[in-house]
């Protein structure tokens, strides 16, 4: 919070700059793929539609993939910024504290029991239910032990330990359920649920996840003002008229909806909610209400970039997004731990 503003793009220019970045990456994502057609031919096929295979590829494979990248990245960036603001802990992240893993478990249970096939929204709502359990558990722990989980005093590890426990437990149950499935391919899906991927997703995933994600975005947007007040501490915020139980409820439901729906259709994509707020916090002067929209755009840009990278590195295989995210996220995570330990 005390870091000087160093970025070249600050203040009012930040959001438009991030939006432009997203637009450029979106275009690049739509033009990236194993079908080696030229950019011009691809765009003509996308907008005009010649009825040939390239039109089909552009409209039914590339476009939903890029759109889902934006939606997933925005949800994860927003959720990361919100939970960090609420816990006032820069280590809090949906992936690290087990929300993504629990959402994955909810989705896997829904698919394996056939609940996912009962209605369009059944799958994202199952992800929401799984995420809700984890986020409520983690926030419940933080409420009970108060400052023990406060990163500013070197206690951030309590939160991470609880998160690791929830993550490991949900991950183990996910593996167990998939191993018990009579479908021989189910077990190999453990990787998808742990690492996330946007490969060969369709409009079906976009339309089923979007309503639940949108509810999450609305709920998290409504936490912005209260999160600003919370930077002064819980007592000060309460004296400023912040209804803490209401804020907690909004945060829990919003994060569960955004992360749950994302994970249900794209697997657990880690580190987005950690890296993006970390990179943008300086540019918004550490103000949560400004960090939320910036992190949503930043998250979309990061996931789009990672999804382009996995297709450039191994075009013919489905390299998982989590691999790219961990390459970017781990150094940031270690840097944060270093700063906390040395009381920066």
């Amino acid at each position: 919070m005390s870091r000087p503003v160093t970025g070249p793009v600050t203040g009012r220019a930040l959001l438009p700059a991030l939006a432009v970045l997203c637009a450029v990456l979106f275009a690049a994502s739509v033009l990236t793929g194993p079908a080696d057609a030229g950019a011009r031919a691809s765009l003509v096929a996308l907008f005009r539609g010649d009825g040939g295979p390239l039109t089909l590829v552009m409209r039914e494979i590339r476009l939903p993939r890029a759109v889902l990248g934006v939606l997933a990245g925005a949800s994860l960036g927003l959720a990361g910024a919100a939970i960090q603001g609420f816990l006032r802990n820069p280590l809090a992240e949906p992936g690290l504290i087990g929300v993504s893993a629990s959402a994955g478990l909810g989705a896997v249970l829904a698919i394996q029991t056939g609940i996912a096939a009962t209605g369009a929204l059944a799958l994202p709502l199952s992800g929401f239910a799984g995420a809700l359990v984890a986020v409520a558990l983690i926030l419940g722990l933080s409420a009970r032990s108060g400052d023990a989980l406060d990163a500013g005093r070197g206690g951030g590890f309590g939160l991470i330990l609880a998160g690791i426990a929830v993550s490991a437990f949900a991950g183990a149950l996910t593996s167990l359920v998939l191993n018990l499935s009579p479908n021989p391919f189910a077990a190999s899906e453990i990787v998808f649920w742990m690492m996330g991927s946007l490969a060969d997703r369709s409009w079906i995933e976009v339309w089923t996840a979007l309503p639940v994600m949108a509810v999450g975005w609305v709920l998290l947007a409504r936490t912005a003002r209260d999160l600003d007040a919370l930077t002064l501490g819980e007592e000060a915020a309460a004296s400023l008229g912040v209804n803490l139980p209401r804020l907690r409820l909004l945060t829990v439901l919003g994060i569960a909806a955004a992360v749950g729906a994302t994970t249900a259709v794209a697997g657990a994509i880690g580190f987005v909610g950690l890296v993006v707020p970390h990179l943008l916090r300086g540019a918004v002067g550490g103000v949560p209400s400004r960090l939320l929209p910036a992190s949503a755009l930043g998250g979309a840009a990061l996931v789009l970039a990672a999804d382009i990278a996995v297709r450039l590195i191994l075009p013919e295989r489905d390299l998982k997004l989590g691999v790219m995210m961990a390459l970017v996220g781990t150094p940031v995570f270690l840097h944060l731990i270093h700063r906390i330990r040395h009381g920066a």
Partner: peptide, 17 residues
Amino acid sequence: GAPARADDVVRHPALAR
């Protein structure tokens, strides 16, 4: 009979279209 994500790509809308 048993569902798996692996089968999604076989039933992908792009293929149906």
